[in-house]
């Protein structure tokens, strides 16, 4: 079986961090590891869409939470799939380590907003960490 890694990200509305989460997820899914990953769409998982449930059952999962409500984790728990979550990134918490970052609510307005170079660096850094986790998970699965 070809092992892929499921990526599930916050799709919330409450905080700009939700948009940052989304951008990081797309960066990983579309640019950095398109062949090694599958998207597990959070509303689809919550709505029991077959494909997303199947991915959640079949593959190890990396979750990118936007805030401390941890909706992704809770939905995986509700679907009895939390055991497949291997890594969790909480952007709201991670961003606290970078007090200089300017997080504007205008980030919420488009799906690919203009961001400051500092924020771009932050997102790249997180995306690269996620890529390391993906590579590790695939390596372990192929042992």
């Amino acid at each position: 079986m070809v092992i892929k890694v499921g990526i599930s990200a916050c799709t919330g509305f409450d905080y700009p961090e939700a948009s940052i989460t989304r951008i990081i997820a797309y960066k990983v899914l579309e640019e950095l590891r398109p062949d090694e990953t599958v998207l597990i769409c959070l509303p689809a998982l919550a709505a029991d869409v077959e494909e997303d449930i199947e991915f959640g059952e079949k593959y190890p999962v990396i979750v990118i939470e936007g805030c401390n409500k941890i909706c992704c984790t809770k939905i995986f728990e509700e679907k009895k799939l939390a055991h497949n979550i291997k890594y969790v990134y909480n952007i709201h918490e991670l961003i606290k380590e970078y007090p200089d970052l300017q997080i504007s609510s205008s980030l919420l307005l488009t799906s690919k907003p203009q961001v400051s170079s500092n924020l771009e660096k932050f997102m790249d850094k997180i995306a690269k960490k996620i890529v390391q986790d993906i590579d590790q998970l695939i390596k372990e699965a192929n042992k």
Partner: peptide
């Protein structure tokens, strides 16, 4: 106003 679907789904 905006409703937050994933948060509703997560039971928040």
């Amino acid at each position: 106003i905006l409703g937050n679907l994933p948060a509703i789904a997560a039971g928040i």
